[in-house]
Design a protein around this nucleic acid. Structure first.
Lengths: 198, 198
DNA sequence: TTCGTCATGTAATGGGTTACATGATTAC
DNA sequence: GTAATCATGTAACCCATTACATGACGAA
C-alpha cells in the first residue's frame, strides 16, 4: 500500500521523504494518512530492496541531510505490476483508493477490471445491508437503524459513482473533467472564511 | 474499539463468541469487520481483566464447548466510561461508528458532544480538501481530481447528516425514525445486468 | 532569539489479519 | 454419510501509529 503509493509518486518526480509525505497526504488524504514512523522505515526498506535509490547526500556536518529518492528500473517494474494487479485485493476500500489515485499510470484494461470488481464488492455489501435491514428491522433501535440507513446510502452512492466512471471508461472517453461542488456561500468575500467553528 | 463493541453487545444479552461476531459484523458491518483471530483472544483478555465472565462450560468430552459470556459489574462500569468518552478519539471514523451504534445506551449530553466533535473534525477535513482543490487544481490529473471531488462530496454529505442528527438531538426529540431508501427496482430490465465479472 | 516548519529518524506498541487446526451439530 | 455451518482456538505476521529525539533554516 505505502510502497505502491511511494512508487507512484516518485515515478512522477524524485523527492525526499518529508515532501513525499505531504503529497501523499493531500493526494490520498480523503481516505488515508501516513506518518513518518511508517514512511521513513519503508523508504529504507525499499532502497535496500533496490526499488528506489537515494543520492545518499549527507549534506552538512552533523545534520542528517536531505535525502532525495528516485525510482530504479526494478521499482518501475514493480510499480506497473502493482498497478496492473486487478484482483480482489484491489477492491478493498483503501487499496482501491490508492489504485484509483494512479489510474493515469494504469493500463485501461486494468482500470476497467478494478472499477468493475470494486462495484461488485460494493453491490454485495449493499445487498447484505439491505438484507439485514429487511430481516431485522425491529431488532434495531433508532440509532442503529440510522447507522445502517446511512451506511446503505453511502454504498449506493458509491455504486452510482462507479457506474458513471465505468461508462465513461468503456466509451474510451476521456477521464471525467467536471467541476468540484460549489460551496454554498453565494457571496464569497475576499476574506474567504469558509467555516466558523467556535 | 473491539472491547467497547463487545461490552455494548453483551450488555444487551449474554452470548458466545461465534454469535457475538455475527452480530458485531451486521451491526458495524457498514464500516468495520472483525475476525475470530481478534475476537477470541480479546474475550479471554477481557475475562482475565474481570470485565466479562464465562460460564466456563467445557460441555461434552473432547470438544471445547460453547462458552457464553456476560458483562460483570466492572464491565458495565467500563462500558459507561467508554461510551461517555467524548474526546478526540471519539471523532475518528471507526471509533465514531462504534460510539454511534451504542448511542441508545449513551448519555444524551455525551451524544451531543460526540456528534458535534465529529462534525468539527469533518469540517476541518472538508476545508483542507477544498483548499487543496483550489490551490492545486491544475496539478492534479483527471483521476486524482475526481478522487478529491468524490471525497469532498462524501464529507459534505456526512456533515449534512450530522447537522440533522444534532438538530434532532438538540430538540430533545426522539431519535430519527425514517424509512430506509427504497431500492429503485420498479422495472429492471434483464439486460440491465448490474455486474458481470467474467 | 525565538518561533514555526523543514527534515530525518528510532523504540515500543497496537490492534488487528491470515491461515491453519480441530471438532460438534444440523440438514439433507 | 456427507456437506454446511456452528464453534473455538493458536501462531505468525503485518502494517502501521505514537511518542520521542535530534537538528537545520528562515522569518519576525
Amino acid at each position: 500500500m505505502l510502497e505502491m503509493a511511494i512508487l507512484g509518486l516518485l515515478s512522477e518526480s524524485p523527492m525526499h521523504g518529508y515532501e513525499l509525505r505531504k503529497r501523499l497526504n493531500t493526494l490520498l488524504g480523503t481516505f488515508r494518512k501516513f506518518s513518518y514512523g511508517s514512511l521513513y522505515p519503508t523508504l529504507r526498506r525499499m532502497e535496500s530492496d533496490g526499488l528506489i535509490s537515494s543520492d545518499g547526500a549527507t549534506s552538512r556536518i552533523g545534520g542528517r541531510g536531505k535525502v532525495v529518492y528516485q525510482v530504479t528500473a526494478d521499482g518501475k517494474e514493480r510499480l506497473s505490476e502493482s498497478l496492473a494487479e486487478a484482483g480482489p485485493s484491489a477492491w478493498e476500500d483503501e487499496t482501491f483508493g490508492v489504485h484509483f489515485a494512479f489510474f493515469s499510470q494504469t493500463d485501461p484494461q486494468a482500470r476497467l477490471r478494478i472499477l468493475e470488481g470494486r462495484r461488485t464488492r460494493l453491490e454485495e455489501k449493499r445487498d447484505r445491508v439491505r438484507g439485514a435491514l429487511a430481516r431485522t428491522r425491529e431488532r434495531f433501535d433508532a440509532y442503529t437503524l440510522e447507522l445502517q440507513r446511512h451506511g446503505l446510502e453511502s454504498v449506493e452512492r458509491e455504486v452510482r459513482w462507479l457506474n458513471e466512471l465505468i461508462e465513461t471508461e468503456r466509451s474510451g472517453g476521456p477521464p471525467p473533467q467536471r467541476d468540484p461542488p460549489d460551496e454554498p456561500s453565494p457571496g464569497r468575500h475576499p476574506t474567504g472564511a469558509t467555516s466558523e467553528t467556535p
